[in-house]
Structure formats: C-alpha cells, structure tokens
Design a protein around this nucleic acid. Sequence first.
RNA 1: GCGGACGUGGUGGAAUGGUAGACACGCAAGGUUUAGGACCUUGUGCCCGUAAGGGUGUGGGGGUUCAAAUCCUCUCGUCCGCACCA
Length: 772
Amino acid sequence: MNKNTIKTKRKYFPSEIEPKWRQIWEKEGINKFKENKGSKGKYYNLVELPYPSGDLHLGHWFSFALADVHARHKRMIGYDVFFPNGFDAFGLPAENAAIKRGVHPKDWTMKNIENMRKQFATMGTMIDWDYTAITCLPDYYKWNQWIFLKMFEKGIAYRGTALSNWCETDKTVLANEHIEGGKCWRCGNEVVQKEVEQWFLKITNYADELIWPQDPKVDWPKEVREGQNNWIGRSEGMLLDFEIVEKDRQDNKNKKSIKVFTTRPDTTDGATFMVIAPEHEFAAEIDLKDVSEYIKMSRKKTEMERKEDRTKSGIFTGRYVVNPVTDKQIPVWISDYVLAGYGTGAIMAVPFADERDREFAEKFKLPIIPTSFKSKPKGEKKVNYHLRDWSISRQRYWGTPVPIIHCESCGLVPVLEKDLPVELPYNVDYTPKGKPPLATDEQWLTAKCPKCGTEGAKRDAETLDTFFDSAWYYYRYVSPNYNNGPFEKSEVSKLMPVDVYVGGAEHTLGHTLYARFFTKFFKDLGLVGFEEFAKKRVQHGVILGPDGNRMSKSRGNVVNPDDVVKEYGTDTVRLYLSFMMPYEATAPWSTGAISGIYRFLKRIWEMSQNLEKMDLSTSDYNMMHRTIKKVGEDIDSFSFNTAVSTLMTWLNYLTEKGVSKQEFEVFLKLIAPFAPHFAEELYHSVVKSDNSVHLQEWPSYQSKYLTQEAVQVVVQVNGKLRDTVLVYSPKLKEQKLVEDLVKQSENVSKYLSGQKIRKVIYIEGKLINFVI
RNA sequence: GCGGACGUGGUGGAAUGGUAGACACGCAAGGUUUAGGACCUUGUGCCCGUAAGGGUGUGGGGGUUCAAAUCCUCUCGUCCGCACCA
C-alpha cells in the first residue's frame, strides 16, 4: 500500500454520518412501530417516562440509550418492538420556575418538552413518538379524573386525615425535603405536625394482593420484591384493651380503655407500662403543663427525626391502665418514639422482651419483669400493615384538578363523566397565598351541584399527586388518541403486559408499587386481564458527577451529554455508557476512558478498509460464534459492559490475524445496537446493501463451533495451580487418559513424586485436582 | 431506628464454587516524521529472583469444601430508600 492510497482513505467523523442517517431513518420510517413484521410477536420495551426539567441529562442517556440497545437487539432477533416515550409533565418544579421567573408553568413545561424532544433525537434511539403521553394535557388528565371517579365510586378514593408536615403560613403540606431546619423552605416559618384532611387512595385494600409470593411468575429483582414486601409490612397480632383507671373511681359508667396492637400477645404479662404517641387522643385529655409542653415540642419534630432520635424522651401522664393479664395497674407514658400513624398509636411496653422498651424503662426507671411468653389475653385478632393509605391531595396549581364538587346539602359529589375533563384554568395566581392556588379563582371554583342543582357549590381546589399520573401512563401509550376510555382494551390486550420495564432504584417503594396497585384496580374493573403490568423489571444505577457526588447545579458538577456528544459523537457516548460500568452500578462519570471507546470505533473503521479474501480456520469460526452467542446473551440480560468487552476481544483477534468480509459483516451486525449510525454507514459502504443494518437478522451461532478442538485443562495439586495442559477434546471424556497425560508434565510430576495420591477430582474439560 | 445493596490492582471493572484481575483507562520502556483526538510493540496486583520459578493476594477474623472473591458466621466500612422531589 502506498501513500496515495492512505490519503484517499476515509476517516471516521461522527458529525458527518450521524445526522445523515437519522434523517434517512426518519424519512424511511424504519422505526415506526407496525405490527406483524417480526416472527416472534410483540416486545413492549418501556422506560420510566422523564420529567421535562428542561435538558436531557446523562441519567436519561443511561436509561434510554441502553434500553435502546436492548430494544434494537430484540428487533434484530425478530420481535415487533414497541418502544414509546412521553413526559411526566405535572409537578412542583414547573410551579417553582413560574414563581421564580414569572413564566407560566404550562409554557415552561411545553417549551422544555420541545427542547428535550430535540435532544432525544440526537440519542439515536428507535423510540416511536407516534405513541406518547404528556400528562399535563387535558387529553391525558381527563382519564386521571375518570380513574379517580371510579376509585371514588368503589370507595378506594376517600377523604381522611393524616399527620403531616404543615406550614401554617402557606397553608400547605410539605415534603420532608422541603423542610430546612424545621422551617418551611418558602416562607421560613416553623413547620408543625398536624392532622390534615386530604384525599387518600385505599391502597391498603390491596396490601395482601401486592405482597410478592415466594416464587412469582414475573421476573422482578429480589431486592424490589423484598423491599416492597417489607414496606407493606404485614404483621399478624391482636388488639388488646387496657382499661383506664379513672382518678375518681366512682365514675364507672364511662369506663374507657386504650387499645394497643401487639404482635406478641404472649408477652402481655411482661407489660409494665404503656406508651402512647403525643398525637393520641388520650394525650389531649391530660391537663398537665409538662405534658402539653412535651406534646408541643414533639409536634415540631418530623417523623424521620423521631425515628432517628436515639435518646428516648418521654413524660408520665399521671394516669394508669390495667394490664388485662396481670390485672395490675401500669403507668401511661407519652413518647414520640411511638408513632401515631402505625397500629393504634399506643403500645404496651414489654421491656424484658423489646429492646426499645428496655431502653425506655432503664432511662425512666420503670420496672422490668420477666415474661412467661405464655399469656393468652382476650382480644380481637388483627392484621396490621406498615403500608399506609396513599395521600394524593396537593395544595398546588400544576396538577390534575380533583373532579369533585363540595355541595352543602349533598356533600362530596363527583363531576359527571360527560363534564370531564375538569380543565385546569390557565390564569391562576399560583404564588403562595395561604390557600390552594385554585381556590383563589372564584369563578372557576364556583359550580352547580351535579346532584341537587344548587348553584354556589364549590369545586375541590386540590390537585392530584403526580404519582397518580405516572401510575398508568404505559397503558395510555398503546392507544394515545383513544377517546372512549383511558385506553383501548383491545390494544392493551395485544401489547400489554410490558415485557421489560427499565428505571431507577429510587422507585422501588413508590412508583412501581403504585403502578402495580393501579393494575390490580383495573383488573377489578374488568379493564385488564392480568395481575402484573410488567413481566420484567430492570433497575439501573446512577451516574455521579466526576467528583463522586450526585450531579447538581448547585455543586457545579453536572456533565452535559450534549457537550460529550459534540466532542465524540452519539455512538461513542452510547458505547461508553454501555461499557463504563454494570447497568445496576452507581459510579462517577470519568472522561478518561471514553477515548478508549473512540479508538475502538476508529480501529473498526480502519479495518473496514482492509478486508481480505481469506478462508476461515476452525478457530476463526470458534471465535466468531462464541462472540455472537455471548454478545446476544449479554444484551438480553442487560450486561452491556461485558458485551462490549467481548466485541473488543474479537476485534483484537481480528486485528492480529486479518479480517474477511464475512467476519466483518457479522461484526457490524453485533455492534449495530450499540453504535447504530456507525454500523449503518459501514454496512452500506462495505456490504453495499440498500437495506438498513437494523432491519437485518441477528447472526445465529452454530453450536458445533462453540466447542474447541483442544482445551486447556487446569492441573492442581492440593488445590494449588501447578500447570495447565492442552488436551484434545475427544480425550476429555476419559478421566484416566487425562490423568496420565497431565502426570507427564514436569511441573506436575515434581509435586506428585514420592507422594501418595489420596483422591483425584476431575471436572470434565476444565480441571483436575490431585489430593496428596 | 427500620429496610435494601455493596466492599477485587493506581482507576472503571471481569470472574457466581474450579487458572483472580478478562476488557478498557492510566502508567513505563522501546519503535515510528507522528495534524483530523496519532499509531505500533512490550510490560504493568504485591514481595523475592537477571530469569526459570516461588511466595502472597479479593475490607478484617473464623468456618464449610479436594477447591472460596463467590457459600455460612461474626466484625468493620461505604452507599441507597424511608411515604408531599420526580
């Protein structure tokens, strides 16, 4: 080869080929989902829908680009891959941006969606955007309201109260993360714990159904199943009555008792005192200054602070109850380590058997007496759950309006189905005003009662938790324009359940549990015919900033994928994300190793211009077929990093021995899911095909090429490696032959000479171990 | 506190009972006039040795096994979630 030919060679410039191919794919519609293309049926490839924060970040790339690798491989092996995407477009950030910058939440959100759609294009995925859902549009949230009303009708959605973080100034409930040092993040005033009336979903009705069986029919990670089961926290026990000893014993008519829930009724004889939560109704009856001060103090602590506080605090109420087993009077204490929201908010303390009770008894010098573990108190059997009903009320603007009208004479009246959606008004003052933003719009707020026709009834001014929106969006994807229900049943029965659901581990206890709950509710309505919405769940890790911390604007450690793409191209970034770490891992981003991937692509590019005419040897075929098998299996199991390293190993082999067109074509097909533009470009120039590489069949491997002619057998003496001996495969079946063969090795014989061999362990084709 | 996960070279990681460190980054030495992010060769856990080779080694202790990064047990450490962030 002379210098002239070198000069005419084309070099690899991602920026020249990537936009070109995306345009061609778009024009030819190769990523449009149409049924009955493949021979293996449908494959619903789902990724958690993104929040439109404004920019795609590396986390989105990690989710979507790698799920796309998986999807593309599925398509090549013959599935009709359904890969939609949408936006989880309601939520607080839009409202914050609006307050801070004076942009309307809707405008802010829709602009972000537009921008992110453009950024998504540069990722080179096969997402078909004809199937989508944007949760803040009336077309979508109409069905939120419809589902809510079905739940209301069935008693699943109800008004209740729960202890919540409450800001008295803004008249709003706050998330734990919106409390900074006990103060409201917006107004800076003190946050208190308060019983707040709000909408709930009775997810506890489904608690037993949501518990994962030992051996589930679907493939969800064990940590998710265990995590959810622990979260549901079913425990069987008893409700026991402890009679209150009245100060004035004459008043026996109104004898009252305090109920406790216990999982260990057999230890009741060891209960030497009772502890109730500061919010317990009995605590309010105590007219002691110290007690009311203690209650006031604990109202300032969040639930988390209470759980974390290791130095137990508490105060004696001055009152007693009767232990139903021993008949003895035991004192009643108040302490905030007892939570009002769990059980009955009161516990019988058995310091002999329970560590927390013991700490408390020791601190306050309360008696500790042994329990016989044989008590059989009278009481009602009761199953208690750690899982609480799901609070879905938000005193916010940017969400789905609750489709309920409060009528003075009829109470809570559902909006008629024909009047849905209850549209979110555009011009509303959403700055904090001490009432829900929607309540400031008198005209919107006032409505006619659908039941009695009274004018002047009020609409519910709260909006739904955005987790409500995201609990069922993947149903909407299958028929996004359907007008007669949340989704078209026939389409759902064709495409659901989801085949793989890719997302983050942070959704273990929230979103994925809610989605399962909705599916079970839909099943009860007769809308779907399956128990679980996703056959498989894959949870990926987090890419941290280069400094090892979570990426955040305030830390200034955000890596913008657009910049990396500009520098190296989409294909390099996709391959690097595949290669840098296992999909489940959490690790910092580092730019160092990315050049290795870029070099890898350049070497393949160079190789495409040096294809040789050659016959392939058996070991060439071994290498090729083993690579086909391993890469396919690894992509299927989301082990992208080892799939890429397998390709690198084959490339190293081919570089050394020279590459044929046949091998190279296979190589391109194997790398196509990772580097779609790159593979397409070379496929067209080398194979001279007009068809897309992405619509080609994935190469199949032949098992005859997976076994080699000769195998390295590891020889150990007493478990220590002494040599490896090459043995021809036909001989491997005969242990005696292998034994004799390896004994000839000098390295082995020097350890065996003069020794008595007590035992020989032979693992066919792998290892032989002499025990002496 | 409760629940879950994890701990392997200078770095990311591979190996799920059978050759620890694949693959890659980095580093070192050598080669090569080397502009489209250069490339090629060799080496690279640690210790002894010119080498052959030997010893040692997967947070730490103990155990099971012919054989342990992998299984069991104790211990130390790190990370994540805990209900209104999405």
